[in-house]
Design a protein around this nucleic acid. Structure first.
Lengths: 240, 240
DNA sequence: AGCCTCTCAGTGGTCTGACCACTTTTGCAC
DNA sequence: GTGCAAAAGTGGTCAGACCACTGAGAGGCT
């Protein structure tokens, strides 16, 4: 049994740990259903309230999924399930943190794009090309462009075949930020530069040229980075 | 934007949104204290149980912090506060995902180490050196070595001055996984290789040589990666 | 007065039991 | 067999009570 020293750990935290153990030990696998809340609470000797808070915690983390009337299930545990956190980060953080986020993307995206140039399947490349057309085309709304842009980068990172890498990068990409980038460039008439970046990346991928892909991706992220720096500077000046 | 139709949204989810609004609108700022649970539940017209689940959710995400007997506080909202998620990923996921995580670290750590070689302050380097001594020294317990090892890499990434980068990388580093690595290498008598990797990284940092630092970090991560691959293979063979 | 201890009100943590909303299964009528 | 309605099961919510802990003020000691 567990240690007789119950220490200072809260009941709920212990319940969380026990459920995590059940998962990591393989007692319940991805997609499988957990015992009922009432059952679990009785088995672990805690009240249903505490058990529910434990489940809520794991649900928030994307480990569990509760279906009203049907039961609590373990998610597929794919890294993509755990992206909520960083989206919250993007929601609350200001300009300073956004710059840091871009610097992280300047590390990840070039490497990912280079990997994709080597690993992506032909189907991946086709999908990426289609998204590029949606960016370059004559979209009805600006929202379309943003969606296609996000999908473009997402598809590239997914083309590495590494779902964890894709999840991390997705978490660092905020839709609202992306929209700001496009709006800012449109205002200044610089959208062609963004489109050229994308075309350059796409060509490198088609050519299966990792180094060219890396360079193209780096140029692209740095352009956005420089834009944000200028944006923050003018905002600073205006607000003071 | 998101539907304001409150139709089928759960009570708890609405409570979460309301609290997030309170934060993003500046009604309560980082470090400040929220109204009491009883107060909040009355104000939003939900039961205290549901309010507690909402708070639990935001606590899990690292947005709120509950202090027993003292109140619920908004965290500093630093990126580091929101690292729990990925550590859970590393805890719960199987071998396949662990490999993916290591591939991500092989992208991030070399770049971060190179950056640290250029940017880290002398105080940073001193701290890193001290941690290296704790790894190389004659530690009382294996846990000490693991702690020092984690701290070593953590300090390096922190030396880039990018807190977001540090938070991401920390989230990809699991203590339990690190312990497995050391245990595995100790069993095979390969701990010297790990120690040499660390020394090589440290020397590159002291020499302010980004490229050497990048190479040293790459070698290190790849060593762990190769070990894990072998480990998974033998495990596979044994279990079948 | 100044300092220390100790009580106590306030707050988060846990428990219980009830009822509601939804899903899935059961079983009856056709 | 088919279709549908009832019922059983499950997560979601609510209410009220008590426990564990914190912080501050009351009271006593030096």
């Amino acid at each position: 049994m567990d240690g007789s020293d119950s220490e200072r750990t809260s009941v709920t935290r212990r319940a969380v740990e026990r459920i995590k153990e059940m998962i990591s030990s393989g007692e319940v696998g991805p997609g499988q259903r957990l015992p009922t809340e009432r059952d679990l609470s009785a088995r672990l000797g805690v009240s249903r309230s505490s058990m529910r808070e434990a489940i809520r915690s794991l649900t928030t983390l994307g480990v569990l999924e509760a279906r009203h009337g049907a039961g609590v299930y373990v998610t597929a545990l794919r890294p993509a399930d755990l992206l909520e956190t960083f989206s919250v980060l993007a929601e609350v953080s200001g300009g300073e943190t956004l710059l840091e986020v871009l610097q992280v993307r300047r590390i990840i995206e070039p490497a990912a794009t280079a990997l994709a140039a080597a690993r992506a399947t032909d189907a991946d490349l086709e999908r990426i090309g289609a998204l590029l057309d949606r960016i370059d085309g004559d979209p009805a709304t600006a929202a379309d462009t943003v969606t296609a842009d996000l999908g473009f980068h997402q598809a590239i990172v997914a083309g590495t075949g590494n779902a964890t890498l894709a999840a991390v990068n997705d978490g660092l990409s905020s839709r609202t930020f992306n929209a700001r980038v496009w709006a800012g460039h449109r205002e200044a008439g610089f959208t062609d530069a963004l489109r050229e970046d994308h075309r350059r990346i796409h060509e490198a991928l088609l050519a299966r040229d990792p180094e060219a892909a890396r360079a193209a991706a780096t140029v692209h992220v740095m352009r956005v980075e420089r834009w944000l720096t200028a944006e923050l500077a003018t905002r600073e000046t205006r607000d003071r």
